[in-house]
Amino acid sequence: MVVSESALRNFTGNIFLAMGCSTEHARLAADVLIRSDLRGIDSHGVARLTGYVRLWEKKRINTTPGIKIVHQTPTTATVDGDAGLGLVVAPFAMRLAMEKAEQYGSGWVSVRNSNHFGIAGYHALMAVEKDMIGFAMTNASPLVSPTYSSERLLGTNPICYAFPAGKYPPVVVDMATSAAANGKLEIAQRLGKQVPEGWIQGKDGKSTTDPHALKSGGALLPLGSDPEHGSHKGFGLSATVDILSAVLSGANYGPWVPPFVAFLDPPDDPVGAGIGHFVGAMRVDGFRPVDEFKTHLDNWIERFRSSATINPDQKVIIPGEPETAAEIYRKANGIPLVDAIVNDLNGLAEKFGLILIDH
């Protein structure tokens, strides 16, 4: 089914209102999810909505949080999200980072006691709108085994940089530090497809293409998949995200990060509060005039786009380019939803007495 952006946005906002969010928070949370769907990152859009509802029903999400700054200097801060939606807490933190950057050139904010914050790109792109370089990361439920390990100790731990360009869309490097995002496994499960080699290992530590392997004790692999292909680098990136997001802020880290799924309880020996994020903003004009930077980034984009390729039918893809193209197309033509997601959303409509999803 293809649903218009406005219809899906209205439906999603109404779900958050039914959960008890304020009008402002419901609109913001819906905006984060819809932006993900618009950009073609279907695993983190409305497909996650039922997950937030289940966590709220388990009283693990506070829909009326008292988000507060618990520590700060002129350029840094730590924010406590009061168990609120990460979709709301992370933008609060990024706005704070941008305020600090506006005054001092850069701003860096760590967050504790939050929840899943959607796509990292949403938060990093907030800074781009102010001619700043945006930076966002979060730790996540432990689904990834470090290199040589059979234990699940890290999350998919995404990281994002966003750079403002001139005549071209921003350059957006938004990626999981695991070989694949968990959402891609969920999509494969819904479609009944296998996943590529190098994404998952079974409980025995051997590679598998079964997207259900996590349910039987398997684990996602770090970016790089195995030691021979550089998995230690993915492990290092993931560790960096975990430390900046949680060890620095006072959130849970490593195997203590609470799971996103409601049927699994958080560890009974937490080392911190909730999930952690880390966001930052840097003023471009703290380094050189904005117009000069944008002109040269445009030149960078053009040179890489014109690169000679191995296959003449392929071209170098600039980071963020596919997502920008998807956003333009889907704004004009609507957002496609697979049947499983439509069924989930209609289940929520019935739960909260809302109108069912339609074209």
Rank of each mutant, 00 (worst) to 15 (best):
V2W: 03
S6M: 06
A7W: 10
R9A: 13
N10C: 08
N10K: 14
T12C: 14
F16G: 02
S22E: 01
T23P: 12
A26D: 04
R27D: 11
A29M: 03
A30M: 00
D31W: 05
I41G: 07
D42L: 06
A47S: 11
L55T: 04
W56H: 13
K58L: 06
N62F: 06
N62P: 04
T63P: 05
I67M: 08
H71K: 15
T75W: 03
A77E: 09
A83I: 05
G84M: 11
L85A: 02
V88Y: 08
V89P: 02
F92V: 04
Q103N: 04
V111C: 00
S114V: 08
H116Y: 14
F117M: 08
F117L: 14
G121L: 09
H123Y: 08
L125A: 03
A127G: 05
G134N: 10
F135N: 10
T138V: 04
A140E: 00
L143Y: 08
S145M: 12
P146M: 06
Y148D: 09
R152Q: 06
G155D: 08
G155L: 04
I159M: 11
Y168I: 05
P170G: 09
A176L: 00
A176F: 05
T177A: 00
N182M: 09
L185Q: 07
R190F: 03
L191P: 02
W199T: 00
W199G: 00
K203M: 06
K206F: 12
P211N: 14
P222H: 13
G234D: 05
G236I: 06
I243R: 07
V247R: 07
V247F: 09
A251I: 10
G254Q: 06
W256L: 10
P258C: 10
A262K: 00
F263I: 08
F263V: 10
L264D: 07
L264T: 13
D265F: 03
P266C: 09
P266M: 01
P266S: 02
P266R: 07
D269N: 15
V271A: 05
G276N: 01
G276S: 00
V279A: 01
G280N: 11
V284G: 02
V284K: 02
D285E: 14
P289W: 06
D291S: 14
E292R: 13
T295S: 10
N299L: 08
F304N: 13
S306K: 15
T309V: 01
T309M: 10
P312F: 01
D313E: 07
V316M: 03
V316H: 04
I318D: 01
P319I: 10
G320Q: 05
G320C: 03
E323P: 04
T324F: 13
R330D: 10
V338R: 13
D339F: 11
N343M: 09
L345P: 03
N346C: 11
E350C: 04
G353M: 13
